[in-house]
């Protein structure tokens, strides 16, 4: 689905932000890109989206070279949800906002198709079509931006810190919707995220970056157990993993726990076995 072959990218002035990046992401995967600020995560997702063209190597999505594909063609396949929804929203009503991206991708002549898809999404997300998106809360604006991104049914969804500035409920609502989309429709999700709890809860695979290089690539649980790797990437595992990891020596297997309830259950089970 997404293949990076020795991809490198240097901004003007030869400031290299990504070097020798190689990975393959299959259809339907939920991948998190991890690393400290300046590790090259956002550059990597922009390269996948075709917003940046590799200065070295080749990036393909669905077999199409992102550097050679037209913007509208790329947007049909790849949806990009930015950290700041206000950069994305540019229409005066939620209906027009959803239709904006569709018009760009499907063409203005597809009026009926655009209207049907807009109505469908308004119903799914429970928005009023005539609502002013700028009068909504930050979380709701992020949801409008997500709805608009998903409108053309992209096969790949790229998320650049999608939960920044959202409260817990707004964050959960958005992430649960993305999880459903990933599980039911097989949408491939690549997410840049600094919140390790969210990564643990939703992503199944993680790519760890540092200094523009790919340090490791593997299942999220294994990545979070690798203390030297996390230290190298300046990352801290989620609290639950830290607690489980400490208990792990005494209660082998407890470090598999992903939630507090599973940790308690696992620990109780081990205690029972010991007694």
């Amino acid at each position: 689905m997404i293949t990076a072959e020795h991809v490198g990218y240097a901004y003007r002035g030869n400031v290299r932000t990504v070097s020798d990046l190689s990975f393959h992401i299959e259809k339907g995967e939920f991948v998190a890109l991890l690393g400290e600020n300046g590790a090259g995560k956002t550059t990597a997702v922009k390269l996948i989206a075709g917003l940046l063209r590799p200065t070295e190597g080749r990036m393909t999505v669905n077999g199409l070279d992102t550097a050679k594909t037209r913007v509208s063609e790329r947007a049909k396949q790849v949806g990009f949800l930015f950290q700041n929804p206000d950069r994305q929203i540019c229409e005066n009503t939620v209906r027009d906002e959803i239709a904006f991206g569709l018009r760009a991708v499907w063409g203005k002549k597809e009026t009926e198709r655009i209207r049907e898809r807009t109505d469908e999404l308004l119903e799914v997300f429970g928005f009023r079509g005539d609502e002013d998106p700028f009068s909504l809360s930050r979380g709701q604006r992020q949801q409008v931006a997500l709805t608009s991104t998903l409108a053309p049914r992209p096969a790949v969804l790229l998320l650049d810190e999608p939960t920044t500035g959202l409260d817990y409920r707004e964050c959960t609502r958005i992430m649960e919707f993305i999880r459903r989309l990933n599980e039911t429709e097989g949408t491939t999700v690549v997410m840049v995220c600094h919140d390790m709890e969210i990564v643990l809860d939703y992503a199944r695979r993680a790519l760890v970056m540092a200094g523009g290089h790919l340090l490791d690539d593997g299942p999220v649980k294994e990545i979070f157990r690798d203390a030297p790797l996390l230290e190298k990437a300046s990352l801290l595992p989620p609290q639950i993993v830290q607690i489980a990891g400490r208990l792990g020596g005494e209660f082998a297997g407890a470090d598999d726990a992903q939630t507090l309830s599973s940790l308690i259950a696992e620990t109780a089970k081990k205690k029972g076995e010991r007694a």
Binding site: L51, V71, A75, R87, E91, F100, A104, V105
Partner: peptide, 28 residues
């Protein structure tokens, strides 16, 4: 950049078309 990701082709050589694309961006 956000609008390009949504499929808006700013690299068009038609100046009038480009202006039409840029105007909605004044809102955000």
């Amino acid at each position: 950049e956000a609008q390009t990701a949504r499929g808006v082709e700013f690299d068009t050589k038609n100046a009038a078309k480009k202006l039409g694309m840029l105007l909605p961006l004044c809102v955000p």
